[in-house]
Design a protein around this nucleic acid. Structure first.
Length: 489
DNA sequence: TGTCATT
């Protein structure tokens, strides 16, 4: 029955009734005058569900029973959509909210209609509350000092508050948010209109948030996303289309480069995370001038590098691996890597907006590759991968364990969370990446955080990426300062 | 040096 009720509710919920003059007021407080004439209903009228009705009773038969509590706005017996069969229940809306309350008090479970074994049900229809959702607000960006009473005061002007709870952690400290349930949707809506973004509480990082609370379903989704962030149990890369040959090749190179970077320790190593062809181009750019001229998008990233043809997958492994093994010490047919670094720094430029794209493309293969091939095929030169890189797309801002969180400064202006993550993926599983944005300008503050799932990856990333030059700046890559630490830099 | 937090 509950399911039918839901269905019927939705179906019947749509017809918009003409509203009485007073209902157009944004504020519909507890003192809102009830409708007195016509078939108008109060804006805060309650739709009642009537259950346990004998199937031989139609609207006209039921009307007298309910009319004694007030003028009826609408009474509908529920019928099966296809067979037209009486479902033994109805929806009833009185013109006045008060009538509904009276009827419920007088009738619900109080009387059994002829032929029925259970007493009549008279209660607000599911549509009236959706579990309270449509009149329950989530309030965020509160001051953590604000109590239930403070919140109550804040929302009181907009209607009758049935419930007001400040969310608190286990220690009893406010989480800076609350739930406020009004008696009607309209009241809740007016509170949103009046209060959302209206003020910034002292100590809050942005203006007050007032919105309808999540439904159960939404909460479940949120929970799942949090689990993803915490445990990395979901790898969306699996859902990506099968990698092209070229991205596979890139993936191999980058994977090996990552291994090199992790095991080598020199500042030179990060550069091998880029295909040789790309190193060349970027290196040249870097030599020419600082700041470099805007870079054309590096072409050919999605096609195989020159030294890789269309041979079967296993056969390309060795040459690539060998090539990369040689790079740091013995350049292999390309100009010596060192000679490209005329300023003694690894090459890379992100002066143009295309640079972020470039990086992203350069690393894209890693994700696909990791998802599709078993780990054993990833180690053709007998090395063990520290951690298969993973991409968590629905990331939360989560810190990893102690020693796994990096603070990165001097990021290119155009780097976002994703670019930051792509840049650090070769060193392990990135459980979160966050570039800080200036709220006012929506511009990057050029620093951010990357969290790995293990300290070794973090250390490898520091070794490889600290001091890495991008444009005119060098990345500063350090362990994130623990909250309680007070060591200034 | 993790900005936003959903009983």
């Amino acid at each position: 029955m509950a399911r039918f009720t839901q269905t019927e509710t939705r179906r019947q919920h749509h017809p918009q009734q003409p509203q009485p003059a007073h209902s157009s007021l944004v504020f519909t407080g507890p003192g809102a005058p009830p409708s007195q004439h016509g078939n108008m209903k109060d804006q805060d009228a309650i739709k009642l569900f009537i259950g346990q009705i004998p199937r031989n009773l139609e609207e006209k038969d039921l009307k007298p029973l309910f009319e004694q509590f007030g003028k009826i706005h609408e009474l509908t017996v529920l019928k099966d959509r296809y067979t037209g069969m009486h479902k033994g229940c109805a929806f009833l809306t009185y013109c006045a909210r008060e009538s509904a309350i009276k009827a419920q008090n007088a009738l619900h479970e109080q009387k059994t209609l002829p032929g029925m074994t259970r007493p009549i049900q008279v209660k607000p229809a599911d549509s009236e509350s959706r579990g309270g959702k449509d009149r329950k607000l989530f309030v965020g960006m509160l001051n953590k000092q604000q109590t239930e009473e403070d919140v109550y005061r804040l929302f009181e002007p907009y209607g009758v508050i049935e419930e007001c709870t400040v969310l608190r952690g286990p220690d009893g400290n406010s989480k800076g948010c609350a739930f406020v349930k009004f008696s009607t949707h309209t009241e809740a809506q007016s509170a949103i209109s009046a209060l959302h973004g209206s003020q910034t509480m002292p100590g809050a990082s942005s203006s007050l948030v007032v919105k309808f609370a999540d439904t159960d379903k939404e909460r479940t989704i949120r929970r799942m996303q949090q689990m993803v962030g915490q445990f990395g149990i979901f790898n969306p890369a699996i859902a990506l289309p099968f990698s092209t040959y070229s991205s596979y090749a890139h993936a191999l190179m980058q994977q090996q480069a990552a291994i090199m970077a992790a095991s080598h320790g020199g500042y030179l190593t990060p550069s091998v995370a880029f295909p040789a062809t790309q190193i060349h181009q970027m290196g040249a750019l870097n030599i020419n001038s600082l700041p470099p001229t805007p870079m054309t998008p590096v072409s050919g990233l999605s096609s195989p590098p020159a030294n890789i043809t269309t041979s079967a997958v296993p056969s390309i492994v060795t040459p690539i691996v060998n090539g990369f093994t040689g790079i740091p010490h013995q350049p292999n047919g390309h100009p010596a890597v060192e000679t490209l670094y005329t300023n003694g720094l690894p090459p890379y430029s992100t002066q143009s907006p295309t640079a972020a794209d470039t990086l992203q493309q350069a690393f894209t293969g890693v994700q696909q590759y990791t998802a599709i091939y078993p780990a054993t095929t990833l180690t053709p030169i007998g090395q063990t991968l520290p951690q298969p890189p993973q991409v968590i797309q629905q990331q939360q801002q989560r810190e990893g364990p102690e020693g796994c969180n990096l603070f990165i400064y001097h990021l290119p202006q155009e780097f976002g969370d994703n670019e930051l993550m792509q840049m650090f993926l070769p060193f392990g599983t990135v459980i979160s990446s966050k570039v800080f944005m200036d709220r006012a300008t929506n511009q990057s503050k050029c620093f951010g955080f990357v969290s790995f799932d293990n300290p070794a990856s973090a250390q490898a990333a520091i070794q490889a990426m600290n001091g890495f030059q991008i444009g005119m700046k060098r990345l500063k890559v350090q362990l994130k300062r623990p909250k309680d630490a007070s060591r200034p830099y």
